[in-house]
Design a binder for these strands. Structure first.
Lengths: 236, 236
DNA sequence: CATATTCTGTATCCTCAGATACCGACTTAG
DNA sequence: CTAAGTCGGTATCTGAGGATACAGAATATG
């Protein structure tokens, strides 16, 4: 069966994708037969989708990596995300009324991409196959978690001063792992980027916090010495 | 039938809620019997849910209005949204792995709130009732659109200079309605708030743009005179 | 119509944070 | 082992934008 073999080739990769989490291998095969996805092959720097093109399917990177970039009204293109194997793209637009791709996806290295047609996902098949419920549940989870992440990002971006951003970030990290001692998951550049400030300015402020005895740190290892001061600083 | 009558009272309000868009009145009744929601009554300034409490249900405001507020680690409470009749809350958390309410909801005036249990929404009933598909589709749409909105917000917040923010905003508005002449949907305070800058600073920058002949404006009426200049300014 | 209140533009002052440059500590490659 | 590259801390300089204040326009209220 040609179609089956077409997917069989990628079954290993597909079963790793978060969208298919909790679905049996046999069911995945059944799903693929039902969803009738298309597999696209791309060479390095090929365009996978173009911003503004008609949106029809959700994409899943089976092999390789790709960049998501967006062009603003002035024509400047900036990279927003790097997609790796197993990553999904276009999942937020799928269920909205948006009809075109909001961004461009370009192969960074040779890529294989699975496209699931937007319409087939909710399922027009009469019977609700058992896997279909899990599939939709996965979808809801993925989109929700994206929204939660964006919400968190908005919170950080809304904070005015660098000092307050750092304090908020450190408190949250510390709370998450439940310890005074934190190992930052980002290096200085990435952290500065995440908080949307310049690296030297951030370092300067961290230095001040250290001088004041609020925190201590060496590279990515940070220790909170004075929680109260940290809390006071994040408000204003 | 007591249960039916309990919902019947609110059927008018419920059928207006976006979550039930496209579902027949009779089907809504069937749904409610299946979902077994709870209706809560609250007096002004009652707490409807408390941040940190166990999350169990999605809330829908049937009557009245309520505020959504969040407390940061320093203990400062700030209002994030105002919920009005027909608005939904807690819909993003419902399908994530988050187990507690991320924010507090408090009645601003006497409120009636419908709670739909988180677990019942995907539906464990064997047959996929016809309305259930639409219901889930509505859910996906609502959450997706929230994510898109947040994404847009992040884009604006990430822009560094006030000038670039204003230019980006004006270009987008103009593009949306397809005209040089825009009537802003926000007053200065709200716009400054949305762009996360101070009002006088924003006014100052708008004044400069006017002096340069890029735009002209009077209160909320803005006209774009030089698109090219606007585009050049939003990049840097 | 008169008064009160909210909204907007503008000026002044001053601080926070960006840009840039440089150095020392590590890492990797040859 | 040397050279080149990356990463983090720090200093200096400068300017963008925040805070504050006030006055005139617009709107609401009696």
């Amino acid at each position: 069966m040609a179609v089956k073999e077409m997917y069989e080739k990628y079954l290993e990769e597909i079963s790793e994708v978060s969208l298919f989490q909790g679905i049996e291998r046999v069911d995945i095969e059944a799903m693929l037969n039902c969803l009738k996805p298309i597999v696209g092959h791309y060479k390095r720097s090929d365009y996978i989708v173009n911003g503004g093109d008609k949106y029809e399917s959700i994409g899943i990177v089976l092999k390789g990596s790709a960049t998501v970039s967006k062009e603003n009204a002035a024509g400047n293109r900036s990279v927003m995300t790097l997609l790796k194997q197993g990553d999904i793209f276009g999942e937020i637009v799928a269920f909205s009324s948006v009809m075109t791709w909001p961004a461009t996806v370009q192969a960074q290295e040779a890529c294989e991409v699975l496209f699931l047609p937007r319409g087939k996902i909710i399922g027009d098949c009469e019977r609700m196959c058992s896997w279909h419920r899990i599939f939709i549940q996965n979808f809801l989870r993925i989109i929700s978690e994206r929204a939660i992440l964006l919400n968190k990002k908005v919170e950080y971006l809304t904070i005015k001063s660098i000092r307050a951003k750092i304090c908020a970030y450190l408190l949250e990290q510390s709370k998450k792992i439940g310890s005074k001692k934190i190992v930052l998951p980002l290096n200085r550049n990435e952290l500065a980027d995440f908080l949307n400030v310049s690296r030297p300015s951030m370092s300067r402020e961290m230095g001040k916090l250290r001088d004041e005895g609020v925190i201590d740190f060496h590279l990515t290892a940070v220790e909170i010495l004075d929680f109260q001061a940290l809390k006071n600083n994040m408000s204003e």
